[in-house]
Design a protein around this nucleic acid. Structure first.
Length: 324
RNA sequence: GCCGAGGUAGCUCAGUUGGUAGAGCAGGGGACUGAAAAUCCCCGUGUCGGCAGUUCAAUUCUGUCCCUCGGCA
């Protein structure tokens, strides 16, 4: 299918590990820009904050925050619906185009590196694989393990097979299902079919801290989520969607609470796991974003952070040279 | 006080019939093209409780002291 590739001039994006204060910073920047004559809409770039049944546990902006400026692509997907980088990229492109058409400026905020890369750096335009093929490969992987599948991949697409670890079932299966469904190797698609990135200039801002300093904040935030009613949120989600294997339940915090509520895990252990998984996740995000030299970083405890970010953003929108 | 079992990595423990030690968890680093809050990879020196003895060599054997946990008083 052909994607519309609207012509967009400026996108600001704000990234960073979970719990470092992106939401509040984005709101501040958006409001400041609006006051300076650059009306801004915030667009979610987080794979979990799209789920409507877990606003607290996935740390979506509150209703009160959302009234201060437009917030788009938050909390619209039910728990039993699956998202993907491609689906998000499509809706994000459309949303960016709409925002721009309104004469507003898009501010992308989120922690899902793959989504942001797909939107801003492009992604191979690979047709959806045959569902039957995927199911068969999954099953085969479950029975025989990933090694035979990886060995097969080495014969088909040695370049990609060498880049991934033989135990990485998700990537092994993905590469094989693309090959079997399209007759082209994964590497071929990456080389020949990267979807065009709309004409954009991007300012990349990062909000973050080394994990050592971030960890206590994460722990505090989980407690705040509990105070805000995380337990009730999980309880009512469980009533509507009792099957914990549904896509929406895979969010950190959701699955731990789900298991605690269904008696699969003592509550104390669930809490510990929630903490631990959150930390590990923040670390993965930190690793991902830090590898991108285009990002200008700020610390949440820097009192001048908001001011400096806004200054950069303003200069960027006014077309002054800086950023990428 | 007596009897027994222990004291080894941040935690739980394994092990060396004497040649200075390794698993799980925790922790740290990294990869990342439609599940990405996903899926994976790499990283282990610690007075082997203290002191003394035997020995070429002791974390290992012996003695003694300290500590913990049981049982009996």
């Amino acid at each position: 299918m052909s994607r519309e590739t609207p012509s967009v001039s400026h996108i600001i994006c704000l990234v960073g590990p979970t719990g470092s204060g992106k939401t509040a910073a984005a709101l501040h920047i958006a409001c400041s820009l609006a006051q300076s004559g650059f009306p801004t809409s915030i667009i979610n770039a987080d794979s979990r904050q799209i789920y409507q049944d877990f606003p607290i546990i996935t740390a979506q902006p509150t209703q009160e925050e959302r009234t201060q400026c437009p917030h788009l692509l938050y909390g619209f997907l039910p728990t039993d619906q699956k998202s993907s980088a491609g689906k998000w990229m499509d809706s994000a492109r459309t949303t960016v185009a709409e925002v721009t058409a309104q004469g507003r400026f898009p501010l992308l905020v989120g922690g899902t590196g793959l989504y942001i890369r797909a939107l801003l750096d492009g992604m191979a335009d690979i047709p959806a694989p045959d569902a039957a093929v995927s199911t068969r490969l999954q099953e085969q992987c479950r029975m025989e393990g990933p090694l035979p599948l990886h060995a097969r991949l080495s014969g088909i697409d040695p370049v990609y097979a060498a880049r991934i670890h033989p135990h990485d079932r998700q990537r092994v299966i993905r590469a094989l299902e693309v090959w079997e469904s399209t007759g082209r190797t994964f590497s071929w698609w990456h080389e020949h079919a990267v979807s065009p990135v709309p004409e954009t200039t991007v300012l990349r801002l990062g909000m973050g801290l080394p994990l050592r300093e971030l960890a206590p904040l994460l722990s505090k935030r989980i407690n705040a989520m509990l105070d805000a009613g995380a337990m009730d949120e999980a309880r009512s989600a469980l009533k509507a969607y009792p099957e914990l294997s549904l896509p929406g339940w895979s969010g950190i915090g959701c699955r731990e609470l789900g298991k605690a509520l269904t008696g699969q895990l003592p509550l104390a252990e669930a809490m510990e796991l929630w903490q631990k998984n959150t930390r590990a996740y923040a670390k993965r995000q930190w690793t991902w974003f830090r590898a991108d030299p285009r990002i200008t970083w700020f610390r949440p405890d820097d009192p001048a952070a908001y001011r400096n970010m806004t200054k950069l953003a303003l200069a960027f929108l006014q077309g002054k040279p800086s950023g990428s």
